[in-house]
Simulated assay, not measured.
Amino acid sequence: MDIEIFPYRVLGSDTTEALLNDLESLEDVKRTVIHGPRFPKGEATLPPKYRERRVININGEDVVLQVKTARIFLEITMESTIDEIEEICKEHIPYGFDINQDRSNYIRKQQTVTDRIKYGDKELPDELVGMTDQYSTFDDHVKIIKKDD
Rank of each mutant, 00 (worst) to 15 (best):
M1G: 13
D2R: 09
I3M: 09
I5Y: 09
I5S: 07
F6W: 07
R9W: 00
V10A: 04
L11N: 03
L11T: 04
E17D: 02
A18C: 08
L20C: 06
N21R: 07
E24P: 00
S25R: 13
V29T: 13
K30T: 10
I34K: 03
G36N: 07
P40C: 02
K41D: 13
K41I: 14
G42F: 13
E43I: 08
A44W: 13
L46E: 08
P48Y: 11
P48C: 08
K49T: 02
K49M: 03
Y50C: 01
R54K: 15
R54P: 06
V55S: 09
I56Y: 06
N57E: 15
I58E: 01
I58G: 01
N59S: 15
N59K: 14
G60W: 08
E61W: 02
E61F: 05
V63T: 10
Q66W: 03
V67E: 02
V67P: 01
K68S: 09
F73T: 02
I76K: 08
T77S: 14
M78F: 13
E79V: 09
S80A: 14
D83N: 10
D83G: 07
I85N: 03
C89P: 01
E91W: 03
H92C: 04
H92M: 05
I93P: 01
I93L: 07
I93S: 01
P94M: 04
Y95A: 04
F97N: 03
F97K: 04
F97R: 04
Q101S: 15
D102P: 00
S104R: 12
S104Q: 14
N105Y: 11
R108W: 04
K109R: 12
Q111N: 11
T112G: 13
T112S: 15
T112D: 11
V113M: 03
V113F: 05
V113G: 00
R116N: 05
R116A: 02
I117E: 09
I117A: 07
I117Q: 06
K118M: 13
K118P: 00
G120W: 00
D121Q: 06
E123C: 01
D126G: 04
E127A: 11
L128W: 14
L128D: 13
V129H: 12
G130D: 11
M131D: 05
M131H: 06
M131T: 15
T132D: 11
D133E: 15
Q134T: 05
Q134M: 08
S136M: 12
T137G: 06
T137E: 07
H141F: 07
K143Q: 10
I145K: 05
I145C: 10
K146A: 11
K147C: 09
D148R: 14
D149L: 06
